[in-house]
């Protein structure tokens, strides 16, 4: 396992370099010495049983764990040549965007949902500029055609799938480099799920996407790299094709084949 991980590290360009990352909640260890490189322009899937630490690890990437009182992160996480803990959290979250399990649009207009980030980060010079940013984000979010005539209606009035694409558009409006998604489809029907998966595939042309999913078929469909977590350990990290045809660790094998391990 270690060997292949090392191979993967040298053949492509890493976007985030995690080394010996450890996370505790109070005195409870949630993540143990996780080392992994998140590659650029790649979809990376985190899979594993509930409570194995996938979300915890994902939240390390944009300092979301800082907001949890008893949570402590140690080890090293390098983004853009610098420790993540040294980045300003607000700027960091503009460059490493996040989409959550439940679509959570602000109770504002579709337009304002998307314009929110660019506004607070001062990314637009004027109204026309901002309009352009909103349109581009909604297009990339594969939502533009459905909402272009009702941009000033409230975002919460959209269907679940549309709301999730709105949240993705909101996250990419600040031109992030990395997009984190924590079970983004678990509240969606299969068609809306397929649309999000198609979108993820498009987004990887420009971003590095990390997706936590409890659907192994989804991991297989959308990702190029898969990391399997178990009880706070990173068990195996490899090309998705290899993980699903010849996993090297018996724990991975048991999990992905649906066996009682």
């Amino acid at each position: 396992m270690l060997d292949t991980t090392v191979d993967n590290m040298i053949e492509e360009k890493p976007k985030i370099i995690a080394r010996d990352v450890k996370v505790v909640y109070g005195d409870k260890e949630a993540l143990r010495d996780v080392s992994l490189d998140v590659m650029d322009k790649t979809v990376t899937a985190f899979i594993g049983p509930s409570g194995c630490g996938k979300s915890t690890f994902l939240r390390c990437f944009n300092r979301m764990n800082d907001t949890i009182a008893n949570c402590r992160v140690s080890g090293s996480l390098i983004y853009d040549g610098q420790e993540i803990s040294a980045h300003d959290p607000v700027t960091l979250r503009a460059r490493i965007g996040m989409v959550f399990q439940k679509p959570n649009p602000f109770p504002k207009s579709i337009y304002d949902n998307v314009a929110y980030g660019p506004r607070i980060h001062g990314l637009s010079k004027n109204k026309a500029d901002l309009d352009g940013i909103v349109e581009k984000a909604l297009r990339r979010g594969a939502l533009w055609d459905e909402v272009k005539d009702r941009l000033h209606e409230t975002g919460t009035g959209l269907s679940g799938g549309q709301q999730q694409r709105l949240c993705i558009a909101r996250a990419i409006a600040t031109e992030p480099e990395v997009l984190l998604m924590d079970e983004p489809c678990s509240a969606l029907d299969p068609i809306a799920t397929a649309q999000i998966e198609e979108l993820i595939n498009e987004l990887k042309q420009s971003y590095s996407v990390v997706i936590v999913t409890h659907s192994m078929q989804q991991a297989a469909r959308v990702s190029q790299k898969t990391a399997f977590f178990h009880l706070g350990n990173l068990v195996e990290y490899n090309d998705t094709g290899d993980i699903f045809t010849k996993p090297s660790d018996p724990r991975t094998e048991s999990y992905i084949t649906g066996r009682i391990g």
Partner: peptide
């Protein structure tokens, strides 16, 4: 069943 790994093989 969408078999994987040993099941797929």
């Amino acid at each position: 069943r969408a078999p994987t790994a040993i099941d797929l093989r």
